[in-house]
Design a protein around this nucleic acid. Structure first.
Lengths: 235, 235
DNA sequence: ACCTGAACACCGTTCAAGT
DNA sequence: ACCTGAACACCGTTCAAGT
């Protein structure tokens, strides 16, 4: 049951010094979080699943916040590892594929999503530092394509905030649990007279979260806007 | 100290029936939340500030989650009330002003921001219903301008998610407390060799949260993309 | 230097009781 | 029908102690 062998405790029922490490705690915390979600992760539960005393965790991490910060860094690294490199593509294709990849990864890994987008409740500068290289690479692609640095930054924020928004909405809706019940409300509420557009679209998929194709639709509009900027700059 | 006059308690030190209402609790909760932030709002504290027993709240609200849901609805209503109506403007100007107004309101009211964007941890369909009319109105403006319903929805999501992303980032950074210390890290980390673009921008304001002018920059790019869609449709 | 249990101040919620 | 305190199971964190 416990992650550590009970033989690790000596005759006094106490662990040897050095039998725990910060890395093992992080690893165990990630594993437990995948089972019980981030919100279900508590210090007592973590200690129990590791077979250690609750207070031992505090030797390695000043606070739960600190520990979560480290989990976020680990999640960031995992995310980076899963992202493909599209820098050999022309910039519009690069942007499209890059953010679709991001969307794919994070809508399929709840823990990653929670750590990177929800547990930002305190701004983790640590984790940010791991993202900067990737942001800068994207900006380099745009600057090479003729954008000014300012335009590149504005464009990047437009796409990344939009992407994050879609992912967060998706997670929020699916966090509650089953989504099947949501559209039940639609016909009752979406009277065509009250909501001419929403009512006439019929089954509006965004009620169950933005679908991949809807997400891509917004992305393409933004990229069109970017094209308009550089149109008269280099051919 | 207590929000209710102590004379409201009868000789047995007990409140009269009907001396509390759900509305008063909501009102008191909003007031307390403004003082101690949403995270600081607890059932015991709320009860004390209202001068009632903790358990009395549970007569009116099944759970804290339920209460927060109602606070979110109230916040949504307040937000709607503060939003101006730009529907007499041409659509590009409408979109620009509409989302700038949203940005202004929510970066200046922390409680509103927290309730509408952060405490979505459980998806509040209740609060959503209050927003649908506004969404549909925006969509009507776009459909009238020549967008298909699908294009209108994609465009709207692009802009609203982007706006939310900027507001959330702003709040995250300013939630931690003072921002003065953040740029201190920049020169050390933003080596021009490691980060050619970010490093050369110098003081990158986005480290302290997207500024209003940066926000507007992204907005304009998205609107350019929208213009490209309808360009050849009606003049 | 590292690991620990007991203890503290908090929390949300339930229950069985008052009026 | 409405209001209540006592009690419960949890939480994050501190402290003073063990080895």
């Amino acid at each position: 049951m416990a992650a550590f062998d009970s033989t690790e405790k000596n005759e006094s029922g106490r662990r040897e010094r050095g039998s725990i490490s910060g890395e093992q705690i992080i690893e165990g915390a990630l594993k437990l979080a995948r089972e019980v979600t981030i919100e279900g992760l508590s210090m007592p539960k973590l200690a129990q699943s590791l077979g250690i005393g609750v207070t031992s965790i505090y030797w390695y991490f000043r606070s739960k916040e600190d520990l979560l910060d480290e989990l976020t860094v680990a999640a960031t690294r995992q995310f980076q590892g899963q992202m493909s490199d599209f820098s050999d593509l022309p910039w519009p294709e690069y942007m499209l594929r890059h953010f679709i990849a991001m969307h794919d990864i994070l809508t399929e890994d709840d823990l990653l999503c929670d750590l990177l987008f929800f547990r930002n409740s305190k701004f983790s500068v640590n984790a940010l530092e791991h993202i900067w290289p990737q942001i800068d690479k994207t900006l380099q692609v745009l600057v090479a394509a003729g954008f000014t640095e300012e335009e590149a930054i504005h464009s990047h924020f437009l796409l990344s905030h939009y992407t994050r928004g879609c992912i967060i909405l998706w997670r929020l809706i699916h966090k509650a649990g089953k989504t099947e019940h949501i559209p039940v409300r639609v016909p009752a509420t979406f009277d065509v007279k009250r909501f001419p557009v929403l009512g006439s679209v019929g089954e509006w998929h965004s009620l169950r979260g933005t679908t991949p194709s809807e997400f891509e639709g917004g992305l393409r509009i933004a990229i069109e806007g970017m094209k308009a900027i550089v149109k008269d700059r280099r051919g």
